[in-house]
Design a protein around this nucleic acid. Structure first.
Length: 682
DNA sequence: CAGGCTTTTGTTTTT
DNA sequence: CAAAAGCCTG
């Protein structure tokens, strides 16, 4: 031990009175209403340390849940830095989905799953829905996205297929309900689960099985949940079930930062808590340690336009700081250009590191232009989100192989990889395999091992099919008890996958990049295997790959290099983060209150989104908008976002090329006027 | 069966 | 205006 660790007593001294309340309240249900930047992460991490060090809780009896892997990682690091490593051993800080996966990995048999079950990502499940619509509902594949969404909502609300069927009162619902039933059947046949199942199945098991419920409730002595305004119905139920009769938990949330209602989050869970737990204690954290007074005032003024159940008055001790700049530009091109130029000049003039800047936007597509301009200015940047690591073709391919290796029932994986690289196995052959599979009631892969196929499939196709089956089976045997990565490398070598990638890629550069990605995946698997510690007794390839699917690998990849880069992210992705200098771009009607949200009257959530964006800023905030924007090839006029009207005018400094700022100011008046008219009409 | 061509579709937000 | 999906030819 080189340096003495900061003792828990020291930690506690660093907290304010409210925060201390939140930490010390340990013997009952507690809700912490934590405003933006009020130090809730400190509270959670200190509390975990306090529970272990002062109150004598075993680390492995505490479960902390967050929504993103990033938050979980950060939290874990902070706890480990307070406690010693051995003391924090076995402590579980993970996302809801990871927790669900962990439960399922232990109890999968009771959920009707077999060993090595695979996890479908949303692309996989959309594909499955399409397949079902195609096969069983004469090709109504255009409603696939709708069905997928509806099914997901049902699952989040713990609605079973039969309940969905009974309650279906419209044509669409009925179709979705029928697809839902089939979808679940197919998933089980493939020995697969989707994201929603990771919560749904553990909840069903805990509800139905007393022994299991008992076991888990004994195991979990204290529960902490971050961002609980984002919990959906099934997640809330999971919390309740794990908390059990002991009812010892700390939930932290902020209703003003609820921005996930569209994916089933139910912020009203915060209110429901006091009904379900009458002795619920409430602590409010209202001191903001992050932003200047000006920024905080703007945020407060904006969010005051939303109704509130719990009143909250965020205040800051920090200085007034700079006023908020509002930049108006000719079009979206100029907007990105201005932002890039601004960052470069501030970087050069004041020596502000790139990493201190963040550019926030509503939709991922807005990043494209920014990338171009930032590159033109030679500004290093990091994009958060965007195309996931796992949606890259080469990664999907390899994952397909791994999935099939681990789970021979995974027909999806089979179909993806069976003819890749080319093995002369086309649709005709596969249809015959499909027939055998249906007759024998086995998966496609298993059907390849049956003698039956020799009756229908002949010649070269038959040989390559059987070779494929033998090859995969041999690999799987070799996988047993061995370290998986060398086996995978052998597999890649056997099929000359790198050669195939080179053949497929347009340039050697692109090919190199893709091979690098594959290597990175192998590397991650290796690391995952090595860190098969804490909790999970078995560490198989199957576990490694499903865990990796849940982790945003892009994050990981970037975090390794300690970089100085401008951060580009969506408003949604920015929650929980903070930056000294923030640019909030595209503040226009139809974009920041998004058009769909205007139509559905969901302005409040959009306002919260803007609120989240503003409260990310520590020192300066710059809001931009374009007067014109190209959309579907047509150039359209943009109105300033109504949220600009809701900010304190005296703290805003408008800039732009003279006339444009003037025009927009005029329009701004008109916008308010038309909003007023609309109100009067209601 | 593959790759190149035309047509059509479309933009929220994500574990 | 772009990307994806579907169509058609070599």
């Amino acid at each position: 031990m080189s340096e003495p660790l900061p003792s828990i007593a020291q930690r506690l001294r660093g907290l304010n009175e409210r925060q201390l309340d939140a930490v010390k309240q340990i013997d009952g249900p507690l809700l912490v209403l934590a405003g933006a930047g009020s130090g809730k992460t400190s509270v959670i991490t200190t509390k975990i340390a306090y529970l272990i060090q002062t109150c004598g809780f075993k680390a492995n009896s505490i479960i902390a849940v967050t929504f993103t892997n990033k938050a979980a990682r950060e939290m874990k690091e902070r706890v480990v830095s307070i406690l010693s490593k051995p003391e924090s051993r076995g402590l579980s800080i993970s996302t809801f989905h990871n927790l669900g996966l962990r439960i399922l990995r232990r109890e999968y048999r009771r959920a009707g799953l077999k060993e090595g079950f695979t996890l479908f990502d949303s692309q996989d499940s959309l594909g499955l829905v399409k397949e079902i619509l195609d096969k069983e509902f004469n090709g109504q594949t255009d409603s696939a996205a709708y069905c997928q969404n509806t099914i997901s909502n049902w699952k989040n609300d713990l609605t079973t297929p039969s309940e969905a069927m009974t309650n279906a009162d419209t044509e669409e619902y009925l179709l979705a309900a029928q697809v839902y039933a089939q979808y679940q059947r197919y998933l089980r046949a493939y020995n697969a689960v989707d994201f929603d199942d990771l919560i749904l199945l553990p909840v069903s098991l805990l509800m139905a099985d007393e022994e299991l419920r008992d076991r888990w409730q004994k195991k979990v002595r204290y529960l902490l949940v971050d961002e609980c305004q984002d919990t959906n119905g099934s997640q809330y139920e999971l919390i309740r079930l794990l908390a059990g009769y002991r009812r010892c938990f700390t939930l932290v949330g902020d209703d003003d930062q609820s921005i996930y209602a569209w994916r089933g989050a139910r912020p009203e869970n915060l209110e429901r808590l006091s009904v379900d737990y009458p002795n619920l204690k409430l602590v409010k954290l209202e001191q903001n340690y992050r932003s200047t007074k000006t920024i905080l005032k703007a945020a407060n003024t904006l969010i005051a336009n939303n109704p509130h159940v719990y009143d909250k008055a965020l205040w800051s001790d920090l200085g007034i700081g700079d006023p908020i700049r509002v930049m108006v530009t000719r079009n979206e091109d100029a907007e990105s250009e201005r932002v890039a130029a601004e960052i470069q000049s501030r970087h050069l003039r004041y020596d502000i590191p790139y990493r201190d800047f963040a550019i926030l936007y509503r939709g991922n597509h807005q990043a494209r232009l920014l990338e171009i301009k930032l590159q033109a200015y030679r500004i290093p940047y990091k994009m958060n989100g965007g195309t996931s690591f796992f949606s890259r073709a080469e990664i999907k391919d390899l994952m397909g192989y791994l999935r099939l290796l681990v789970n021979p029932s995974d027909d999806n994986a089979f179909l993806r990889v069976v003819n890749l690289p080319r093995r002369e196995i086309g649709p005709a052959t596969l249809e015959k395999v499909g027939n055998v599979a249906t007759d024998r009631n086995v998966s496609l892969f298993e059907a390849c091992g049956y003698k039956d196929i020799e009756e229908s499939v002949t010649g070269r196709s038959l040989k390559s099919l059987q070779d494929f089956e033998k090859w995969m089976t041999t690999l799987r045997k070799r996988l047993e008890g061995a370290s998986p990565v060398p086996v995978i490398e052998q597999m890649i070598y056997d099929m000359d996958y790198y050669g195939w990638i080179q053949e497929q890629s347009s340039s050697t550069k692109a090919a190199e990049r893709r091979i690098e990605n594959v290597r990175f995946l192998l590397d991650s698997i290796q690391r995952m295997m090595e860190s098969a510690w804490e909790e999970d007794e078995t560490a198989g390839l199957d576990q490694a790959i499903s865990k990796l699917l849940l982790i945003d690998m892009l994050e990981r990849q970037e975090e390794e290099e300690d970089e100085d880069k401008v951060q580009l992210l969506t408003l949604h992705a920015s929650k929980g983060l903070e930056y000294p200098h923030v640019f909030l771009i595209g503040c226009e009607e139809e974009l920041l209150p998004h058009r769909n949200s205007i139509e559905n009257d969901d302005i409040e959530e959009e306002r919260r989104l803007a609120y989240v964006g503003i409260t990310r800023a520590k020192r300066t905030l710059c809001i931009t908008m374009a007067a014109k924007r190209r959309q579907y090839g047509e150039e359209i006029d943009c109105l300033p976002s109504r949220f600009l009207d809701e900010l304190p005018e005296e703290d805003l400094v408008w800039e732009g090329r003279g006339d444009e700022a003037e025009n927009v100011k005029k329009e701004r008046g008109q916008a308010s006027l038309s909003a007023l008219k609309a109100m009067l009409n209601d």
